[in-house]
């Protein structure tokens, strides 16, 4: 189980849990980041915000926000 930011572009993960404050969790959950949801990282350059596909939508996330999402990386 790793932070979403450790996945590289093209990698898929299954969300395990969300960390952080209630507000952040609530916002992320309403955008579709809930446990069990598959996510695909589309942009991650090791710094700056990343882009993730979740439930058919591309969402840009700041690195700080993305580290609060823990995922199981899918076997490549």
């Amino acid at each position: 189980m790793v932070a979403l930011t450790t996945l590289s572009a093209g990698q898929t993960g299954l969300i395990h849990s969300l960390q952080g404050g209630h507000r952040l969790i609530s916002r992320l959950a309403s955008l579709g980041f809930t446990p069990g949801a598959p996510v695909v990282v589309t942009r991650n350059y090791g710094h700056g915000p990343i882009i993730v596909a979740v439930r058919g939508t591309q969402v840009a996330l700041g690195r700080g926000e993305a580290t609060h999402i823990l995922v199981y990386p899918a076997e490549a």
Binding site: I51, Q58, V59, G62
Partner: peptide
């Protein structure tokens, strides 16, 4: 509110 960046594309 450290400029939370969550934005739909």
């Amino acid at each position: 509110e450290q400029s939370v960046f969550i934005m739909e594309l």
